[in-house]
């Protein structure tokens, strides 16, 4: 931490940050191209990207990157995202985000909301990848299976797209001081005390 101030603490290492941005950018690109393919009124998206056919393939390739990044994220963050007893108490008070919370259970690395977001990306990410694979190979399935695939792809896209908005808000202006965790990797000591006190305690004991 040579060039960082003394009270800055590394909360995400370079591997995590790179994996996060590969996942985030491939996901965002899939959302944009997906919306372009879903809404005729947004033909501007495929037009800018070089037409519908090119957009279809870009959506598929970006989806492959998303699938790999989501798989990697699972092995990277699943351990710290396992729900524990305290998460219920955190959830019941919405983490103090909506009203003043009293005696919020101290968080380890990720709070219950972050864990929920993680598992949402994993679950609906798996669903969107599996249904996407079925769509690409729709000709080998009975139409009924293909029909389910298209419907579930739209459903998981909706859930992931809506969750992304919350994720971006809470990771930037909603929680000042947080965005650095995914850029430089460092957050302030005070930030750690607020957002991941148990993790900080354990880290500093070492």
């Amino acid at each position: 931490m040579s060039h960082h101030e003394k009270d800055m603490i590394m909360v995400t290492d370079a591997t995590e940050r790179i994996a996060h941005w590969i996942l985030a950018l491939s996901c965002l690109f899939c959302v944009i191209t997906g919306l372009g393919l879903m809404f005729h009124a947004w033909a501007i998206i495929p037009t800018v990207l070089g037409g519908y056919y090119a957009t279809k393939w870009m959506h598929i390739f970006s989806g492959v990157i998303f699938a790999i990044a989501t798989g990697y994220a699972y092995f990277m963050w699943a351990k710290d995202s396992m729900f524990e007893k305290d998460d219920l108490g955190w959830m019941m008070q919405a983490g103090g985000y909506l009203w003043e919370a009293k005696n919020l259970p101290p968080v380890y690395k990720y709070n219950a909301g972050q864990k929920a977001f993680f598992w949402c990306v994993i679950a609906f990410g798996a669903l969107i990848v599996v249904s996407g694979l079925a769509m690409v190979n729709a000709q080998i399935f009975p139409p009924m299976i293909a029909r389910w695939a298209f419907m579930l792809h739209a459903l998981s896209g909706l859930v992931i797209a809506a969750f992304i908005v919350i994720h971006i808000y809470l990771g930037t202006i909603g929680n000042p001081g947080t965005v650095g965790a995914m850029i430089t990797g460092y957050c302030s000591r005070a930030w750690c005390q607020t957002h991941c006190p148990r993790w900080l305690e354990e880290k500093e004991k070492k």
């Binding site: 919306l35 879903m38 809404f39 103090g96 985000y97 909506l98 739209a154 896209g157 909706l158 859930v159 797209a161 809506a162 969750f163 908005v165 919350i166 808000y169 809470l170 202006i173 909603g174 929680n175 000042p176 001081g177 302030s188 005070a190 930030w191 005390q193 607020t194 957002h195």
Partner: peptide, 24 residues
């Protein structure tokens, strides 16, 4: 899909205006 993204973005904006950022 549009309603969902819009509602969530609107909710975030309202949260920022009413509750304000979650300060450290």
């Amino acid at each position: 899909t549009l309603l969902g993204i819009g509602a969530v973005a609107g909710g975030a904006a309202l949260h920022y205006l009413i509750k304000g950022p979650h300060e450290v």
